[in-house]
Design a protein around this nucleic acid. Structure first.
Length: 561
DNA sequence: GCCGTTTTCGGCCCGACTGTTTTCAGTCG
């Protein structure tokens, strides 16, 4: 999947063009880059069908360039731009406050081409002497450069939930605030989040900004205005606070929740009526306000039903809202059991009993214990006889808790099938199987495992690790088809670094193969992350019927029987 | 460079904040 790679090339071209003061072209390249990033399909497949120009924002010229890049791995136009102005614009613009224009100025005045050059120039005090620059910008550069050098890693949604909730509560409890909402991609439950966008109603905005900028967690105030401030938090996360009026709160919620593409389509819809939509409200041609206080009223005036944040990715939700055909999304409370749970028998921190008790206290009806199979040597799963010995602990946990404890295994998919015997497989109430490495023939191996063993659940199917490991390059059509025939479900894994099956694939294949949402918990605390997995199912437009573990246990087992 | 129920030319989102400025350009979201 080269979508991200292609998009970054186009972004860089946009920056180079902007450095030359060329108008409008940069926007065109960025629009194209953005739609390519948002594609659920592999751009190479689109290119093979010769349909690049069907991508929003991609016309003849950009399509040719993408084709050249995919076919040859080179892009002459890009290379020429870079040769003319040999500057690492991608890295340099990561410095907050530096855009293409200022990068060009620094290059022309001081020959700055890399982050190291920039750092040297700032330390020598040369930046302050460049026209239009000054002490302040130089100081900012010095402060920002380490962050820029680390690169543009987005935070894992699951890792920042505690920070976000803490901030939200803390501000909400402060006297100056009447209402606080974390918005942006966090509210949409995107698997990764770039920063925290916070929206608030304040009875004293001066005091509210003071409270925000002096929070314990704040290490630096980037900017501070009357309605907007930006800070860096101790875990290197940036948080932005925007204060709006009550009359605009709904419009601001829409605006700052995004996604950008969703907002653009909403705005176009307003423009079609000769109206205007912005963060302050929906206005008619006479500038009279039609809506703004609540989200629902903004959507309603636009002829749409309210759209859950998880769906706001401009993947058809606006048409569906117009037709009153939005999915009735699966909800966290619908989930009756967790079907992927580790214990001290492999790499978990807690015993079967402890995991079961915690699952019960979370209100679950059943839990499937799935330690690793024996082939994952690093992790040290139970041997076949140790697995048999586990049965006693399973029985004890069943006696001691209100939750039904099932005995399963997370077997490892190998070139030969699974890392367990057929006899062992039949001893499992339910059998989970997963890949834990990057095989040469992933599709063949998985299909073989599905054929040869009674696999019930295919766990973290793409075996991706966010920010670390790309998803496997599967023939997903073939896998889904086999899984459906063999009555094998695909897992939506709730671990913060996985959130795999990816929501785009969930949307594409829902209805073709059933899903389960599981935590893959390795400790009692991780059992609480089920909601994150459910949010990914929601992003994939799943209704309750698409998710098997919304069923009572007897119906669940019936499916796999 | 892209796009079109204003379609083959003439538009292209826009408001807040900052810094270095006497009135604005660049950046960001």
């Amino acid at each position: 999947m080269k979508n991200t790679e292609v998009a970054s090339r186009l972004y860089e071209i946009a920056d180079f063009l902007e450095m030359q003061d060329i108008e409008y072209k940069p926007r065109a390249y960025r629009n194209a880059a953005r739609s390519i990033e948002a594609l659920s399909e592999d751009i190479e497949a689109i290119h093979e069908r010769d349909e690049l120009q069907d991508i929003e924002g991609v016309g003849e010229s950009i399509a040719e360039k993408i084709a050249e890049y995919l076919d040859t791995g080179e892009l002459e136009y890009y290379q020429r731009l870079k040769d003319d102005l040999p500057v690492d614009v991608e890295a340099l613009t990561r410095v907050e406050g530096l855009g293409p224009k200022r990068v060009k100025q620094l290059h022309d005045a001081l020959g700055v081409a890399t982050l190291d050059d920039l750092e040297d120039a700032a330390e020598d005090g040369r930046i302050a002497s460049v026209e239009d620059f000054g002490e302040q910008i130089q100081e900012n550069v010095l402060e920002q450069i380490e962050t820029a050098k680390r690169g543009e890693e987005r935070m894992l949604l699951g890792k920042i939930v505690p920070t976000a909730r803490h901030l939200e509560t803390h501000l909400y409890d402060a006297p100056a605030f009447d209402q606080v909402d974390v918005v942006g991609s966090f509210r949409r439950h995107r698997p990764t989040v770039g920063d925290l966008d916070i929206l608030a109603l304040a009875n004293d905005s001066e005091q509210a900004m003071e409270t925000f900028c002096t929070l314990d967690a704040v290490t630096e105030v980037i900017e501070r205005g009357e309605t907007r401030s930006s800070v860096t938090l101790s875990d290197d996360l940036q948080a932005d606070l925007r204060i709006v009026d009550e009359a605009s709160y709904g419009a601001a919620l829409v605006y700052f929740t995004g996604s950008k593409d969703h907002n653009i389509t909403l705005r176009d819809r307003a423009i079609d009526n000769d109206w205007k939509l912005n963060e302050y409200g929906l206005f008619d041609a006479e500038d009279d306000k039609l809506a703004g206080e609540t989200e629902a009223e903004v959507y309603e005036e636009l002829g749409l039903s309210w759209i859950p944040p998880e769906l706001r990715e401009e993947t058809g939700e606006i048409d569906a809202a117009e037709a009153d055909a939005l999915p009735d999304l699966v909800q966290p409370n619908d989930i009756r059991g967790d079907l992927h749970v580790h214990t001290t028998a492999s790499d978990g921190d807690n015993t079967i009993r402890e995991m079961a008790e915690h699952a019960a206290s979370n209100g679950l009806e059943y839990v499937l214990i799935t330690d690793h199979g024996p082939a994952l040597s690093v992790v040290g799963g139970p041997s076949e006889s140790e697995f048999m010995d586990q049965k006693e602990a399973i029985d004890d946990a069943n006696d001691a808790t209100d939750v039904t404890v099932l005995h399963g295994l997370e077997a490892n998919i190998t070139e030969e099938g699974l890392d367990i015997s057929q006899e062992w497989a039949t001893e499992c109430d339910l059998l989970v199987a997963a890949l834990h490495d990057t095989p040469d023939q992933p599709t063949e191996n998985v299909i073989h495992a599905f054929d040869a063993y009674p696999v019930d659940i295919f766990a973290h199917p793409l075996n991706r690790l966010l920010n670390e490991r790309e998803p496997l390059d599967f023939d997903l059509d073939a896998l889904v088809e086999t899984a459906a025939e063999e009555r094998t479900a695909f897992e939506i894994n709730a671990q913060p670094e996985r959130l795999d099956f990816d929501w785009r694939s969930v949307k594409q294949y829902r209805g073709d193969v059933p899903f389960v949402v599981s935590t893959d918990a390795h400790s009692t605390a991780e059992l609480d992350a089920l909601d994150l997995g459910v949010a990914q199912a929601q992003r994939g437009w799943c209704e309750g019927d698409h998710v098997l573990n919304t069923n009572p246990l007897d119906e669940l087992l019936e499916y796999f029987a």
